[in-house]
Structure formats: C-alpha cells, structure tokens
C-alpha cells in the first residue's frame, strides 16, 4: 500500500484515499476527527493562492541554557521535515483582504514556544502595527519549550505585552485555537485575541490531563478541555468547522474594515451627520 495514495486517521485508524481526505480538509470521513495540519496545508486552506510572503525568516539554532540533547533533537526534526522552528509568520490575503498571519506547526517540538517562536510572534504584531494590518494566529502548541528553561517562560510575558501594544494601537487580533492549544501558549497570546475561534474537538487547556488526574485524583468530565467545553464555559467566541474557517475569517475581516464603519473613531461625528442627512 502506498503511503502517499492512502491516508490513515490518527484517531480511528480509518484508511481511505488521500485525495478524499484532502478534499475534506483532513477531517476523517469516518469519525470526523480533525487531523493536526502542518503550516503549508493550513496556509493553502486559508490564504489566497500565491499571496503568502514569509517574514522574519531565521536560520540559526538557539540553545540559551545549553540544554543536553536539544541540538540533536533540532537536527533530527530539521532533516526529517525541513522545519527549523515551530512557527511560520508572514503576510497574505484572505479573499483579497491583507493580513499578517502566524501558523504554528507541531512537527517541530510539539509547536512549543522558545525564544525564536516568542520573537517571531512579537515581531508579527509589531509589523502588523506598522502596516496597520490585522493579525491572525493559528495556534497549535504543547506550551513552553522546556529545553530553553526560563527564557521560554519569559516569552509568555513578551508575547502578551506585544498583543497589548498592538491592541492599544487599535489592531484586530483573531486567534484560532486548533488541536492542541495547551500550557504556556494557551496562557499567553492564544487567549488574548479580540475574537477567539476554535476548531471542533480541539484539545484546549492549561494543565495536562495526566497532571490533573495525578495531583487532584479527580475524574475528568467526558469532554474536558475540548473546544466545546471551553465554549460552554465562556472562553471561546465560536467553534468553526474547518470547511467554513476561511469564509468566517473573511467575514470578520470585512466587518472590521473601517471602510465599512461609518462610526469609526476618527470622524465619528461627521459620519453621524452623514447618516442623518441621507
């Protein structure tokens, strides 16, 4: 059986032609499971064809606390997937509307956040402020990068402050929580969006399930730490099926386009007059 022609569901093991799953946006045709996407598939799905331009490309490997085995692991992933970090950032268009976008990729150390990830995300918000563009972040991360120790923890503060400055400047930030969104990433920029979307069934939470079970000896509710659980408790604006994600993002962008708002801040009074006169 050719691996390229067929696709096996990570959850239920259902095997079908890859083409069929591809058309279905990598949602299992049998059980409905959402496969975690690599950044290329995500960009193809969301960004208008041939409009993505990558920004802040870096090439060096950073090992701030000289952690044993870190470099070896980095080199393994690099040779396997040609990926040298856990986030790709850049600009592109969604139905002709320009945005800055960041996509996390779990193939690189579970999408964890170290200094490079924190710096790229911070610069994404800074670039977006300079260019007066909205930011869309696709989150997929196991949390902080342990191998970078305290430097990794500090990225939570840094990225949160980056969202703050961007928000104060009036920028729109949409975060899309996908499977998984946990740990230090969930507890920083992921939950700071003006609008927080999530994919169905995505694992979202702060503490790991096993840690909770061990420490507290509590039984976990059946849909614990899913997108649905988080929305039920008021922490997510909307769960969006993958096939509708692009159009939903496009509509949100349209609604935030100040050209479509007569009440925009700068000339609020003038606009109101206009409305009365017309």
């Amino acid at each position: 059986m050719s691996q390229n022609l067929f696709f096996k569901c990570t959850k239920c093991g259902y095997i079908t032609e890859r083409k069929k799953v591809e058309v279905n946006n990598y949602v299992c045709l049998s059980c409905g499971y959402y496969e975690t996407l690599d950044y290329k598939k995500r960009l193809d799905m969301i960004i208008d064809q041939n409009t993505f331009t990558e920004t802040n490309i870096h090439n060096d490997f950073h090992d701030p606390i000289n952690f044993p085995g870190y470099r070896t692991k980095h080199e393994e992933i690099l040779s396997r997937s040609n990926l040298n970090e856990a986030v790709i950032t850049g600009s592109g268009y969604i139905d002709g509307q320009k945005v800055m976008i960041g996509v996390m990729d779990t193939r690189y150390m579970m999408g964890s956040m170290g200094v490079v990830v924190g710096e790229k995300i911070t610069r994404l918000f800074e670039d977006a402020e300079d260019e007066k563009l909205p930011v869309i972040m696709f989150i997929a991360s196991g949390g902080a990068r342990m191998q970078e120790g305290i430097f990794s923890l500090m990225q939570m503060a840094k990225t949160s402050a980056a969202v703050l400055r961007f928000s104060e400047a009036g920028g729109l930030y949409i975060s899309v929580l996908t499977n998984p969104t946990t740990g230090g990433v969930s507890a920083s920029f992921a939950f700071l969006g003006d609008i927080i979307l999530a994919e169905p069934g995505a694992l979202i939470g702060f503490a790991g399930k096993r840690v909770i079970e061990q420490t507290i000896n509590e039984k976990l509710p059946f849909n614990f730490q899913t997108a649905e659980f988080l929305m039920d408790h008021g922490y997510i604006d909307l769960i969006v099926e993958r096939k509708n994600l692009k159009s939903t993002l496009s509509d949100i962008l349209k609604i935030h386009d100040q050209e479509n708002n007569k009440f925009k801040l700068e000339d609020n009074i003038g606009s109101i007059n206009l409305l009365i006169n017309s």
Partner: peptide, 20 residues
Amino acid sequence: FPGVSAEKNGQAEAIARNLY
C-alpha cells in the same frame, strides 16, 4: 492549580490576562 474547576474557570485565560 491543576484541576477540573480551574480549567473550567479559564486558568489559561486568567494567567494570560494578568500578563497582559
């Protein structure tokens, strides 16, 4: 705190909000 109620009450959001 790692627990069901903490997750239900938005532990991640609470920490993120403080950082912000």
